[in-house]
Design a protein around this nucleic acid. Structure first.
Length: 500
RNA sequence: GCGUUCGUAGUGUAGUGGUAGCAUGUCGGCCUUCCAAGCCGGUGACCCGGGUUCGAUCCCCGGCGGACGCACCA
């Protein structure tokens, strides 16, 4: 069979093998920006989450979970209500939609549009008779496009679905401060859904309207940011950094430099922030991405979010969509707690060092992963079509820990009751050893192997006639297709050493 | 959101104003001592709504969805 090594083959694999389905609900034609994960996709996602949770526990992070719906005041305080509502101009004739502020900035490069009130923008448009670029119809009124999904709770209380998990984590600060016994930095993360009403979602799960976030937060003192204990151990580690000044010179390949060097050259400002970049890099690397397709890209000052003092995106190079952000590292300063302190009348000014009189609002450093984007990019870079004998085969070269199945067990032939019985017994014992295993006998042995290759199963066991005599089986490696003979008693130990 | 274009079994496709063919998958059976073998049998589709028509999967209108371009992407 000829299998083409192209993106269409990959996209159909996602559907055929149960990784990603959608837009959901498919039987009703779908709603743009919403996707479902099938069993394989969900298994992969859970394996990623398990790996992350295990690592973060080791790094001293606690996990929290907050409601996905929060009252209006939260989003007033966070700034999202103001900044997530875009002023737009809709042409009455051709329905073209443009961002009012961006459109004005282009029309009047010398004026400071950012921060201008809608009324002033409106006047500017009216007085200068600005027109739609497509059909030359004069623009009318500025309308609001809200990127947050609005809802009502109880009898008419306005609330919004969270556009990020981070803000909901910050609302727990005083609880966390007590809970962690004021040991700074307070390290915490939250995994969960966030919602954004994208104008036109595209690129599959990369820009969904309901998506996952996995966000780490450090609540940290100003002094500690500059003198950060854990920084020492990682300061020599090189990372692929592409700062915004390089980008201005149209450079798009990162430089491998260490945190120490980046701080010396003023590319980075704070050791604690450098540590966050390192942590993001570490968590990305353990998922098995090859080095060449990872880079950190710094936001230029006008690209940054409203809360950020510094921001770097960790990006993965994809075939289908170019560089894709899977993680953003943000220096949110004291912006969030300052605002929530003001709006809630809480006092978040606390002593974070040895001097009880010196009080400050904690700084926040954030590492925000998008698990959906991890899943997509990981699958794309694991996807391989390679020669196998006369034909070729599709292999998902996921690291063993992440594969939906760790082990598959087959009888060499299914019309031999002894072979199938032994294979089923081995399957049972593997399940009992809690190795994620899969039994299959439907098809010739070659087909059984290929099915598992498409799912990324790292190991396949085949029970043959020799097995009936000496209790050994063949263990086949996914990538090399090489087989070794092992005694059944050694199986679980052997497999477990490979998946750690 | 606008423009162009497309929408047929699970997947990939052919085709038609008289309800559809191929490949592959999948299921059952036979066969098979290691990499998508073979044989037999089964399964399964025209995105949704309206219109024109005796009759629409095909033509027209609207919607939904995908791709590409523009805009948007804190």
């Amino acid at each position: 069979m000829i299998i083409e090594d192209n993106i269409e083959t990959f996209n159909s694999l996602l559907k055929r093998r149960g990784f990603i389905w959608g837009p959901s609900p498919e039987i009703y034609g779908g709603l743009a920006g919403f996707y479902s994960y099938g069993p394989a996709g969900m298994a992969l996602k859970n394996n990623i989450l398990t790996l992350f949770r295990r690592e973060l526990r080791a790094f001293g992070f606690g996990e929290v979970e907050c409601p996905t719906i929060m009252p209006e005041i939260v989003w007033k305080a966070s700034g999202h209500l103001e900044r997530f509502i875009d002023p737009v101009l809709k042409c009455e004739k051709c329905d073209t939609l443009v961002r009012a502020d961006k459109f004005l900035q282009e029309s009047f490069p010398d004026l400071m549009i950012d921060g201008m009130s809608y009324e002033k923008m409106q006047d500017l448009i009216h007085n200068n008779e600005l027109k739609c670029q497509k059909c030359d119809t004069p623009f009318g009124k500025i309308e609001e496009y809200n990127l947050m999904l609005k809802t009502e709770v109880g009898a008419g209380n306005i609330a919004y679905l969270r556009p990020e998990t981070a803000t909901t984590t910050y609302l727990l600060f005083n609880r966390l401060d007590q809970d962690t016994r004021k040991q700074y930095p307070v390290k915490v993360f939250q995994y969960g859904k966030a919602y954004r009403n994208e104008i036109s979602p595209r690129q599959q799960v990369l820009r969904m309207r309901a998506f996952d976030q996995f966000e780490l937060q450090l609540f940290i003192g100003k002094d500690q940011e500059m003198d950060f204990e854990d920084y020492e151990a990682i300061k020599k580690v090189k990372m692929p950094l592409l700062d915004w000044r390089l980008q201005e010179q149209h450079v798009d390949t990162p430089k491998m430099i260490s945190s120490e060097e980046a701080l010396n050259k003023k590319i980075l400002k704070k050791p604690a922030y450098a540590y966050c970049l390192h942590l993001a890099f570490y968590l990305t690397k353990i998922l098995g991405y090859p080095d060449e397709i990872i880079r950190f890209r710094q936001h230029s000052p006008n690209e940054r979010a409203h809360y950020a003092d510094d921001a770097w995106d960790l990006e993965i190079k994809t075939t289908q969509f170019g560089w894709v952000e899977i993680c953003g590292v943000h220096d949110r300063t004291d912006y969030d707690l300052k605002r929530h302190g003001e709006f809630s009348n809480q006092n978040f000014e606390i002593s974070m060092g040895n001097d009880p009189k010196k009080k400050e609002i904690p700084q926040i450093l954030e590492i925000a992963f998008g698990p959906d984007r991890i899943i997509y990019t990981l699958l794309e870079c694991a996807f391989t079509v390679e020669e196998a004998g006369k034909e070729n085969r599709i292999v998902l070269k996921l690291i063993p820990e992440l594969a939906p199945n760790t082990l598959a067990i087959f009888p060499l032939k299914k019309n031999n009751a002894q072979l199938t019985a032994l294979a089923k017994n081995i399957y049972k014992s593997m399940i009992e050893a809690r190795i994620i295993s899969f039994y299959d006998e439907k098809g010739a042995i070659g087909k059984l192997y290929r099915r598992q290759d498409e799912l990324g199963t790292p190991f396949c066991i085949t029970v043959d006639h020799q097995s009936l005599e000496d209790n050994t089986v063949t263990l086949r490696d996914r990538d090399s297709m090489q087989q070794i003979r092992l005694n059944v008693s050694e199986l679980s130990k052997h497999v477990k050493t490979k998946i750690i």
